[in-house]
Design a protein around this nucleic acid. Sequence first.
DNA 1: GCACTTGTTGTGAGTGATTCATAATAAGGA
DNA 2: TCCTTATTATGAATCACTCACAACAAGTGC
Lengths: 169, 169
Amino acid sequence: MPTATLEPADSIRAAGLRVTTQRLAVLGALENMPHADADAIHRRVRSTQPDISLQSVYVVLGALTDAGLLRRIEPAGSPARYERRIGDNHHHAICTGCGAVQDVDCAVGHAPCLTPAPPAPLPGTGTGTGAGTGDVAGFRITTAEVTYWGLCPACQHLPASHPDKKENA
Amino acid sequence: MPTATLEPADSIRAAGLRVTTQRLAVLGALENMPHADADAIHRRVRSTQPDISLQSVYVVLGALTDAGLLRRIEPAGSPARYERRIGDNHHHAICTGCGAVQDVDCAVGHAPCLTPAPPAPLPGTGTGTGAGTGDVAGFRITTAEVTYWGLCPACQHLPASHPDKKENA
DNA sequence: GCACTTGTTGTGAGTGATTCATAATAAGGA
DNA sequence: TCCTTATTATGAATCACTCACAACAAGTGC
């Protein structure tokens, strides 16, 4: 039994949290719509729990995120999104046209972004101080986040008719 | 290649914008405090222009960003920050303790995060200008953004307190 | 130097996303 | 089943930012 496909109720319990219908509903919603934002999750959850409020969804999302059951990503210029895929250090490609988010496995295979210090040390000039393992500019790095910005396949074929998203170079 | 060594007034003019005292003040403020947010910039600018409003600072920042004179970064969980270092594809290390931001040159040297597909033979001459367009999950990638999260040197030596709120001045 | 055009700024209100405070409710152990 | 305490519901509040529009001033022509 793969650990990642634990029953939602079990994973909630395993995290030391109480199992509630709201939390199950939120996890269930994210099962079908990865990278959804709070509002989308709220709409989806309301189909089974019409009385749940958006604020309660926020509370649930916060609790599940704190417990490590969800990962929260915050693309620049768009509301926070949540995903169930946790535990690996995958990255994200975000469409500047429609805002779609796609998981991207670290294709290089050895988490290069997590340990940016190359085998040969940097010349310690200017901003680049000598870096040890997991150290960047004197920082003790714990996480590296890579976001690719571009056009999704669908938007590549559109005549640039989605101006709702700003492109900051 | 309009470098940052241009006089602020010249770079504003070169971008096709009118030179105003407000814009000069904002650029001047960012000269001394890289990675400042709008509020910090506003406070700094008010020392020379006491009547400028925060909204006007936002307008100026937006104009300068659109003109390519500033780069806007939006770390998760903190307001947008602005920096004058543009034109290169450097990354950022952000302290989870105090929110400090540090520039990080692409340590691997050949923009690995921009072209994660292993067989793609990217000419290393670009040095991370963001010009390479790789394909990730069908996306046509134009920009790759790398954010390292960790503890800055100062916060590494502090007892494990999480203020979570930073004051950058 | 002066008037004019038009880009910029100032101002207050408005918006979207998220959090806070607190009372009501329900999950899970005794 | 009861009881404790985690969890949810609710409305207000906050935070970062944008909008509309009138007032102003930078740059241009004379």
